[in-house]
Design a protein around this nucleic acid. Structure first.
Lengths: 223, 223
DNA sequence: ACCTGAACACCGTTCAAGT
DNA sequence: ACCTGAACACCGTTCAAGT
């Protein structure tokens, strides 16, 4: 009866993946270690190998997790549909920013990832893009979503959560020390370069940039 | 006089960085190891620490290398200028695809990187974007360039050069095994999804997609 | 079915010591 | 000025053994 909440759940493939994602959230992907996870479960490193065949498979499972249960609402136009896919994808990746890059390697290798890919490809083909363009745009869509997530918090993702504030301030201080004569624009954009006050706005902006690029490509193609 | 060409050059910060980039090219970033580099120079691991303070500094130096000596030709319109920057950046990153991600972490932290950033920011500010938009677009520009490089060869960058062909074929075989009833579009795009027959065209396409997105954003803003 | 113990071949890095 | 030796605290992983 003295079971404290969420402390040391049973070892299973699922709980291992969850723990790995949590560690990555807090301290970056590099902190995700078979041995570290084992310690957190109060178990021997080798115990994990019963549930997961090796570390690569664990990382793959972490990547797969971003695609399960994704519900893309349908829209009227193909462009709005594409945007909806990006929105859902970005929302999913935001849950575990540091692990987001793992998703890109798994879109075409997991069932739910493939379903999302199929939907995206079908949409672009129907819009009139040829196979090469469709493939390139779809690939770029996935990569763009990951990029938005990882560029946001920036490289601070590898830094432990508590140190991120200090890390950001140090970065800003370095830019502030730059001569305004040689780097006027950097100095001018200092605030927005080092701090993102509105995360959601940044993601919307990035999605719009991508979708807009696709739209323009489509216009040019039919013109 | 029996000095075979390019075999075991003297140990120095520069030759160490070059070797590290070469190893990454051949076997991926993960293969870049202090100990591995030491072996290739026929020297003790600790010997490297005289020239480079630690591994992070080595990775930083690898990232910095992409920006040195970049010459961006000037263009008439701001949009063409932005495109020219992207072209030069992509060309530089292509030299060492697996190490390209290191560049993104160094744009705002190295002298030549900052010069490129300054130029890009100035250009966007002059075009009428506000500070937030300018920062976001410039950041996206850098990330997009890296993304184009890394998404191209795909995750195969971590795979030793000789095994990449086999790796790609295995990937294609997996997609070919997919039921055409459930994944018609994936099957239809199979060729272009797994093989990039024209690298240059892919980069041009990606750059156009980005530049086009920026252009559309600018149009909307002034409309 | 699930986990442990011992061992192996790797990492980065420190610190004192050599030449 | 530049490099080595020995050592430490980490990795992932195998394989036989326990319960």
């Amino acid at each position: 009866m003295a079971r404290t909440a969420a402390a040391k759940p049973d070892l299973s493939r699922e709980t291992i993946v969850d723990r790995a994602l949590a560690i990555a959230d807090a301290e970056g992907l590099a902190a995700v270690t078979i041995r570290r996870i084992a310690v957190e479960f109060g178990v021997t490193p080798m115990a994990l190998y019963w549930h997961v065949s090796n570390k690569d498979e664990l990382l793959a499972a972490m990547g797969d997790s971003f695609f399960v249960g994704l519900q893309v609402p349908s829209r009227d136009g193909w462009l709005d549909e594409l945007r909806a896919i990006m929105v859902v994808l970005v929302e999913s990746l935001r849950r575990h920013p540091a692990s987001a890059p793992l998703a890109a390697q798994r879109v075409m290798a997991s069932e739910p990832g493939l379903e999302l890919a199929e939907r995206t490809l079908a949409l672009l083909l129907a819009a009139g893009f040829n196979q090469t363009q469709t493939s390139d745009i779809a690939r770029t869509a996935m990569q763009t979503a990951v990029m938005l997530i990882t560029s946001q918090a920036g490289s601070e993702l590898d830094v432990p959560a508590e140190q991120r504030e200090a890390h950001m301030l140090a970065k800003r201080a370095a830019l502030e020390a730059l001569p305004a004569s040689k780097f006027p624009s950097v100095r001018m954009c200092l605030q927005s370069l080092t701090d993102c006050d509105d995360e959601q706005a940044y993601y919307d902006f990035g999605i719009e940039l991508f979708v807009g690029g696709v739209a323009r490509l489509h216009d040019r193609r039919t013109a």
